[in-house]
Computed example of a mutant assay.
Amino acid sequence: MERTENSASVQNAVPVTLMQPGAARFWLAVLLTGVGTGAGAAALTRLLELVQHLLWPGPGASLLDAAAQAGAWRHVLVLLGAGVLTGIGQIVLVRLSSANGIDITEAIWFSAGRLPAIRTLGSAVLSVIVVGMGVSLGREGAPKQAGAVIANAISDTGHLPDGQRRLLVACGAGAGMAAAYGVPLGGALFALEVLRGALSLRMVLPALLTALVATAVSWLVLPDAPTYLIPSYLNSTCVTVWALVAGPIAGLVSVVYVRTIAFADRHKPQGWRRLIAPPLTLGVLGVISIQFPQLFGNGKDIAQLTFVGQVAPALLLSLLFLKPLATALCMGCGTPGGLFTPSLALGALLGAALGHAWSWLWPGAPPGLFAVIGCGRGARGHNSGTGVSRGIDDGTNGS
């Protein structure tokens, strides 16, 4: 019995040299996963841009600019259409597969990374389309799902043992985030720390190599440009003292946000309600967005404005409540999408709002610097419990 367990442990171990049995097969799988994930992320990003360009035309370069200039009827009809598409998509995708849900972390931990390929890819495409239409969720969920499916398929083809499959699927999902945002180091750390739950030296090289290859492939199609343009800010005593005061407040807000998202995720509609809830919910958000076009999209545009101090205090307070509420409602009605960028946007809004209040007591620091610091708190909240992008769930996995 002990000899069998030791044999299985050796088989599942990540090979560190090409001389080990199965090493060439494993490292070839790593390279192919990186290439496939990078190509998939580029294709999904282009699809999102196409949908956004067709439904939100305008001279502005961002979704926020186009939404601000669009008529009220477009706000309601486009989000209502996203709700109808989500409702139909949920029914169709669940019927395509009898497997359990497609949560990536659960698949890695409990199913050795095995995912229902058609339903997961279908959810990824649906996510990109509705995010391009303007729902308040992140776009990183789709390339993460695509990377996980590609890694799973390559693991099947290469007959990799379960231990290597788990790692490769985590690497594929992390590489999807890396390719989507051009952050190979961040994608590798996400794969190991958040998805795989182990930050060991033996696993670092496969994760980093997959993320680097995926990012390089995506750069062949996508522009190599920063996601955010942040001015050069200088630290000061004012900002340091503010961080000590604002830190506990940001922590409490993060707890509330994580629990709200978890509650919404647990109470997704089931049965025939899958068809009704998304149009009703997104239709209401469309009406609210007439007054607050900043609710459209994943929050990237409004975060960018806070970084340069171009959001009025009254609007900051309104969006600090409405933006996370919109994200929770989108999640709760079953819309597939990511949570990374919405979490960053919440942190930026909170930091900017607290920064404006602090400036009345201790003037001098630019408001945008407070938003940048708060954005880091939002990222931490994302990793604490909202890091897993959600797809179409059939209600059988208890999530």
Rank of each mutant, 00 (worst) to 15 (best):
A68F: 12
F110T: 15
Q20A: 14
L96I: 08
A24P: 11
E106I: 12
V78A: 05
G58P: 01
P15T: 09
I108D: 06
T45Y: 01
Q90A: 12
L55K: 07
V14N: 12
A13P: 15
V35Y: 05
G87D: 07
S9L: 15
R95V: 04
P59K: 14
G36T: 07
Q20L: 14
I88R: 11
A67M: 10
S111G: 08
S62C: 01
W56E: 01
W56M: 01
T37A: 03
S9K: 14
L31E: 05
T17D: 06
D103G: 15
V35N: 06
L77P: 05
P59S: 12
V84H: 06
V78W: 03
G83I: 11
L63V: 00
R46I: 08
L18F: 14
A66T: 05
F26C: 05
A41D: 03
N100V: 13
L85T: 07
Q69K: 13
A43S: 08
T105L: 15
A41N: 03
W56N: 02
A29P: 04
A41T: 03
G60H: 04
E106Y: 09
G40V: 06
W109E: 13
H53T: 07
A72C: 13
L85P: 10
A13Q: 15
G83M: 05
S62G: 02
L18K: 12
W27C: 12
L18Y: 11
L96A: 07
T86G: 07
W56R: 00
A39V: 03
P57V: 02
I88K: 08
G81A: 04
R74G: 04
L54N: 09
L54F: 05
M19Q: 14
P59H: 11
S111P: 06
W73N: 11
A61V: 02
V78T: 08
V84S: 03
T37K: 06
L18S: 08
V51S: 00
G36C: 11
G34M: 09
G101D: 15
P59N: 09
H75P: 10
V92D: 07
L50V: 00
S98Y: 03
A24L: 15
S62N: 04
V84M: 09
P57T: 02
P15Q: 10
